[in-house]
Nucleic acid binder design. Structure first.
Lengths: 256, 256
DNA sequence: GGAGGACTATTGGTCAGACCATACTTCCAC
DNA sequence: GTGGAAGTATGGTCTGACCAATAGTCCTCC
């Protein structure tokens, strides 16, 4: 089978003037397979944890070669929709997109899209990080607060020892985001932290004292959250973020 | 070359007790290629618009077969990092991740991840959509406002004619998001609208009158934005979104 | 009888070479 | 010059094969 040659499995033969304007369809069989499986997942015919037939099986069912099936699986895998395992009992297992994977996509977009300026990234982060403050104030538990304070203590100690890093600052913000107890928010905010980190690292070289002030602001913020004082917490976070942003901006300006 | 067999190009030979705990690395050559090209892009050695060597060239350079190179390209393509064109002068062109592509990833995550509840999605949307109000109030131009009002007029007409759809409501919110004039925010908020649409459509069947009230609220919001009245605009948007969310929630509850 | 190891079957990962479809280039004839 | 025809580079797919990884099975040895 499949003698008519490549492409004919995906295309509906543009010859003949009878069925004009009809098929045209996609030029890639692998993409057609991706769409099909994707739809099966979205419609609930395939659910997380379920196992797709083996590649060799899929070949026969789709009427394509193994190469094509494999490319389709790569695409699905890249989208986080399936996980492929090797060995007996291996194969493609339906899986839910992970926060990490999506996060990397967002991060790529933030850092590599030429239409997005650093100022826009900063602003978007501000919107998110301020927006969650009311949620965090409402939902943070005693343990959450205690954890944050521990982080502040550790930061203070690190500053005293001269080992404070920007990663520790980023860690604080990540933890705060987690206190919203909302996976969607956490996913959205996560990707911002690494790009921020790189610019902050650069900025810190210019202003090494920044760390100490930052930690102080962190601690004040935590206390405001503990008191469920939304306005105060918001104001503190805004001041903290805007000061950081200004510092980064200033440096990037002095370098241009 | 490549006689030692598959996998040996990606693995660093776990034999020998000298270099214990060292390599182990990834088992897939295609993934190694992806990482390498990805790094080249991030480091700026490859910039948008640039063309990668042909698949056959890449085979030789990486010392792998064409299948492997192609799988790598599929992964990069799925991530929106390259675009592949056929024909002479075709090939893989470096491209910046598009908002659409990333958006679909986020959407997949929001709708298919079992750890994310609809309530979380609603809340995240609330945070974003409220967070941008100050930005929108500050940055919206006369034309922007006029455009929104036109949309409201069209909606009113549609309601009178009985042809109002939830898509029109979603369109309004998408337009508002665009008024922030911030690509990052637009990218983050976009994916929320389609999932919202599906639940709202269902909700509307239960409460057909909702549309008219919604449009009234839209219009009031626009006027507040025009007056740069941030508190009022925020309050209006919050009320609007929370009412919608409640309606959706109520319906999904009555169905369970 | 139990524990450990060898065997086997299944399945993904890769290779090699081939062919077709597409789209740009070049060039020739008019 | 302009239109079309031939040439060429390139991706898309197929085929058939082998290797590598893994889980289950069975067999041996204690």
């Amino acid at each position: 089978m499949n003698r008519p040659g490549p492409g004919s499995a995906a295309k509906s033969a543009p010859r003949g003037a009878d069925d004009m304007f009809n098929p045209v369809s996609l030029a890639r069989a692998s993409q057609a397979i991706v769409d099909q499986i994707r739809e099966l997942i979205q419609d609930g015919h395939l659910t997380a944890g379920e196992r797709l037939p083996s590649e060799r099986d899929l070949c026969e069912r789709f009427g394509v070669s193994r190469v094509t099936v494999r490319e389709a699986l790569r695409i699905l895998e890249a989208g986080g929709l399936v996980t492929v395992k090797v060995g007996a009992r291996g194969g493609a297992y339906i899986t839910s997109p992970s926060s990490d994977r999506i996060g990397r996509g967002i991060e790529d977009y933030l850092t590599m899209s030429p239409t997005i300026t650093p100022a826009e990234v900063t602003e978007a982060r501000l919107v998110l990080e301020l927006g969650i403050v009311p949620v965090v104030c409402e939902r943070a538990t005693e343990e959450d607060i205690a954890g944050l304070l521990e982080l502040c203590d550790a930061a203070d100690a690190a500053i005293a020892a001269g080992t404070y890093t920007m990663e520790m600052s980023a860690e604080f913000h990540i933890r705060v985001a987690r206190l919203a107890h909302n996976g969607a928010i956490e996913m959205l905010l996560g990707p911002f932290h690494r790009p921020m980190l790189t610019s902050m690292k650069a900025a810190r070289e210019a202003a090494p004292a920044m760390g100490a002030l930052g930690v102080k602001e962190h601690r004040k913020f935590v206390l405001a959250v503990r008191d469920h004082d939304v306005p105060k917490a918001t104001a503190l976070m805004r001041a903290h973020l805007e000061r950081t942003a200004a510092r980064v901006q200033q440096r990037s300006k002095s370098h241009s």
